[in-house]
Design a protein around this nucleic acid. Structure first.
Length: 349
DNA sequence: AATTCGGGGTT
DNA sequence: AACCCAGAATT
């Protein structure tokens, strides 16, 4: 048996039973694929069940509001996925009369669907022979064929996509794609791959050359930015002052509290002397609580230091994105993870 | 071509 | 702390 046939045989005997593998409904497969972008299966599973139950078809999704979708998405990260899903659902409802497209060339034009996702949906729902290349496939191909071109370089992406296209089984592309990814996820893992039970290790470049720990090659780029978010709690116990975030920065269109960002973690007197803070609260600011610990929140490109200051005086100037709402209504708003924690600590919601 | 978009698990 | 995850969009 050749390389890919071996992987398919391995897959048929070792695959996990995942809900999106038991359907050819392009809409359901689309849901699963967007949720799983840069997200582990175990983390995405509960969200997948939540979304198929709430939105069983394109029409129900297209009728949703953005706040509602983001609330369902809360905690999963990369929130543009949720916003793009709503745009795509609305477009599919209009242009395709609610029937989700299955052809690669149609799918690739939709918001939130790139090369990987278009190949996944078209091959799984209609057996179109398009090869998926995700993080798993990069790793399997780099190791087996001994490719040392960086997987995150422009040339590298092209090399791996072409190789995957040449390898794909044109009779059963969906099965082939599932097998490549599952093999990478379960056996040919990033650390400590299970080469001892690998069906193709005797022909694997990385195994033969003891190079599984250096392949695939990835250029490191990440530079982490430190940011300091000073949140203000303004509440009378019944209503509370909230902020709707804009569409540029992290957590676009989600909700948090009024906040002033500073360049460093300032002592409280210095913070309250900040021009922006004075503009908001005036000169006689009454503070009731500032003994809450600073929350450190780690993201891929940012380290956030989050502090909460409880203010008793009323602000004299409100930003256009600020609004008062009832504590009860907080249940309906989508918050970033650290704000979920803040609100839980304050209101026990 | 490089940067940005989350949150969580593994090592 | 570094790396990765069924990547895509923006700069």
């Amino acid at each position: 048996m050749n390389f890919t046939d071996e992987l398919v045989q391995w897959y048929l005997q070792n695959k996990r039973d995942l809900p999106w593998r038991n359907t050819t409904d392009a809409y359901v497969i689309w849901l699963s694929e967007i949720i799983l972008q840069q997200t582990r299966v175990e983390q995405g599973l509960p969200y997948f069940y939540r979304f198929v139950e709430r939105y069983p078809n394109v029409s129900s999704f297209a009728a949703a509001g953005e706040d509602e979708v983001l609330k369902l998405w809360q905690g999963l990260g990369y929130y543009s996925r949720g916003r793009n899903m709503l745009k795509t659902a609305k477009l599919v409802q209009e242009q395709y009369h609610g029937k989700f497209p299955q052809r690669y060339d149609d799918l690739i034009k939709l918001k939130g669907i790139g090369e990987y996702t278009a190949a996944a949906i078209s091959s799984f729902s209609a057996n179109e022979a398009k090869a998926v290349v995700d993080g798993n496939v990069y790793r399997v191909l780099a190791r087996y064929f001994g490719i040392d071109e960086p997987i995150n370089s422009t040339g590298g992406k092209k090399t791996f996509q072409e190789l995957a296209n040449n390898l794909i089984n044109k009779k059963t592309p969906g099965l082939h794609n599932q097998a490549m990814m599952e093999f990478g996820a379960m056996l040919c893992k990033p650390k400590n791959p299970a080469c001892g039970i690998c069906p193709v290790h005797m022909n694997c470049f990385a195994f033969i050359n003891n190079a599984t720990s250096i392949l695939p090659i990835k250029l490191k780029t990440v530079k982490v930015r430190e940011r300091f978010f000073n949140y203000f709690l303004v509440t009378d116990g019944d209503s509370v002052l909230m902020n709707k975030r804009g569409d540029k920065d992290i957590w676009a269109n989600l909700y948090d509290l009024p906040m002033v960002e500073t360049a460093s973690l300032l002592p409280l007197p210095e913070l309250m002397d900040n021009p922006t803070v004075k503009e908001i609260f005036g000169n006689d600011i009454r503070i009731s609580v500032d003994n809450l610990p600073v929350q450190k929140h780690i993201l891929t490109h940012q380290r956030l230091y989050i502090r909460l200051i409880k203010i008793q005086s009323k602000p004299i100037k409100l930003d256009s994105n600020w609004f008062y709402t009832t504590v009860e209504n907080l249940r309906n708003l989508a918050f970033p993870k650290p704000i979920v924690i803040l609100i839980k600590n304050i209101f026990n919601l």
